[in-house]
Design a protein around this nucleic acid. Structure first.
Lengths: 213, 213
DNA sequence: GTCTATACCAAGATAGAC
DNA sequence: GTCTATCTTGGTATAGAC
């Protein structure tokens, strides 16, 4: 099964509080948007992943775009939350190492890192691009101000993050076992937590994409 | 006008050799795909940018997907070509610096870097993802083998590249003049050739994206 | 080699029932 | 709160004329 697993049949979803349902859909949407990108995601896919009907998704968030914005906002919130956690943490490890680890650990929150990455390449979109720039700068500011990194360190940190995102997005881990070159690159790119990446890949397939004939 | 500038009116394009027209369309497609991504690009947009009719684009390349694959392939070719140029170049600068500069210089080839970046996040697509992984690994192999970098240097180089791609994709340069934080990040991210990025941004707009009402 | 016309399908959004 | 049915748009691809 893909990371985007429809919650089974069409039987009406059991009635639940709007807030809970909302959270459920946002989680599902994060995964789906992370896999297919903004344009490549249909509200139908999100609905299936969340186990509700397509119109309900639209109804609840207004438009696909608004849904995406909420997803991005939420992802960013969690990202910074994780960073602040690493900052507060008692440890003898250097700070950049701790925050880096926190970042990589976010891989287990399916789609979270990827959904941001997708937003980052949509800079020319008037509304999504704007949100992406703001979000990115927010992270940069965190590194400079709260974490106390200098400009060079911050840049370096972000560069590593973008590489990590790319390795996840491109699903390089699929090549890990068969391709020694890929393995070397992966080993080099994930100081720790490579296991996390490899596990994640296990139940991913190409489901949801049109099958190549 | 956007980077994707329609070549004026609908008057039948002057008859030209298939090969030349092909190249023309590939150039246009690189720009458009770079801006909107694979799914976000319509064959119609490509056609307009190239100054031909939409069915002609499809006719010439078979499907949108095949066109995209050709675009990626071509972009990768040019990338490696540029790297090999830097490799051969006589200079007292260190090699990594030269190749890095060659990379950043590719920004002026509109869409080239971005079209690759878009492919990198589409890893779960059976055919595009496959091409993306291959391409990425090809670059890595170049660094390790031809350029003679070790694994760490190569990783570092790629990380920097992904940050550069992200800065371009997110159109961070739009913030350069107004936002000091963005300026600092940009100054830090582009050792040289920042001017190139800033120039590029000048004639970009959000044209082509649905206007926010 | 290039276009016009069009078939066909997918997807977002709306209306209204339960 | 959640669904079914449906309208509408827009996008790929095909047919066939010039």
């Amino acid at each position: 099964m893909s990371s985007v697993t429809p919650t089974e049949s069409k039987t009406p979803a059991t009635r639940m509080k709007s807030e809970d349902r909302r959270e459920l859909i946002l989680t599902a949407a994060t995964e789906v948007f992370g896999e297919f990108g903004y344009v490549g995601t249909t509200t139908e896919k999100v609905a299936q992943a969340a186990g509700v009907s397509q119109p309900y998704v639209v109804r609840m968030f207004g438009t696909k775009e608004k849904l995406y914005l909420e997803v991005i906002h939420r992802a960013l919130e969690r990202l910074l939350e994780a960073f602040r956690g690493a900052l507060a943490e008692e440890s003898d490890k250097p700070l950049d190492h701790r925050i880096g680890l926190a970042y990589v650990t976010l891989m287990s929150d399916r789609g979270l890192l990827l959904v941001l990455m997708h937003a980052f390449v949509l800079g020319s979109d008037p509304v999504i691009g704007e949100a992406a720039r703001c979000g990115f700068l927010e992270v940069y500011e965190f590194l400079r101000t709260e974490a106390g990194f200098d400009a060079g360190q911050s840049r370096q940190f972000l560069a590593n993050g973008m590489l990590v995102n790319t390795m996840i997005g491109i699903r390089m881990s699929d090549e890990y076992s068969a391709n020694p070159i890929a393995r070397e690159l992966l080993d080099e790119s994930f100081p720790e937590k490579l296991d996390l990446l490899l596990e994640l890949g296990d139940d991913r397939t190409t489901a949801g994409h049109e099958a190549a004939e």
